[in-house]
């Protein structure tokens, strides 16, 4: 069932892709123009995904709901990190990231706190001080 659904989803994406691609008009001097390649790619993708939707192969075992909940939690932590990194600064945001992912992966909370407290500043020191990648120590919220 999952493969069928995935086939339908990819078909929709490929169809939208081809539909949008048709409208890119050529400027002068360019024989083929910017719309032909997307159509060449999009149409086989539509055919193949449609055939996967009709004749699926393989079985997909999805995790049970507690595990899926952990995956959602991990994604929320990752997204939160991406959104808050520049507001919080690297060490604080990374502390939260390591702590959160560590707990979601089944680490004991106290140990995860220690791990995060050690590695968040250590990674900042390694990348910012030693390797010279500019990473803010405190973010925009502290300005």
């Amino acid at each position: 069932m999952t493969v069928r659904l995935a086939g339908v989803a990819i078909f929709m994406i490929a169809a939208l892709y081809t539909w949008y691609g048709r409208d890119y008009t050529a400027s002068f001097g360019d024989v083929l123009g910017p719309s032909v390649f997307p159509v060449i790619v999009g149409i086989p993708a539509m055919i193949l995904s449609a055939s996967l939707a009709v004749f699926p192969t393989g079985q997909v075992q999805w995790p049970d709901s507690p595990h899926m909940l952990r995956q959602v939690a991990a994604l929320a932590i990752l997204l939160g990190y991406a959104l808050l990194l520049r507001d919080l600064g690297f060490p604080l945001a990374t502390f939260g990231l390591i702590l959160g992912i560590g707990i979601v992966l089944g680490g004991a909370p106290l140990r995860a706190v220690i791990l995060a407290a050690v590695f968040a500043p250590a990674l900042w020191a390694l990348f910012d001080q030693v390797l010279g990648l500019p990473l803010a120590f405190l973010g925009r919220w502290f300005d």
């Binding site: 990374t94 390591i98 992966l105 680490g107 995860a112």
Partner: peptide, 9 residues
């Protein structure tokens, strides 16, 4: 649990 958070960071 200790390795993957560091990998993510």
């Amino acid at each position: 649990w200790a390795l993957m958070p560091i990998v993510a960071a």
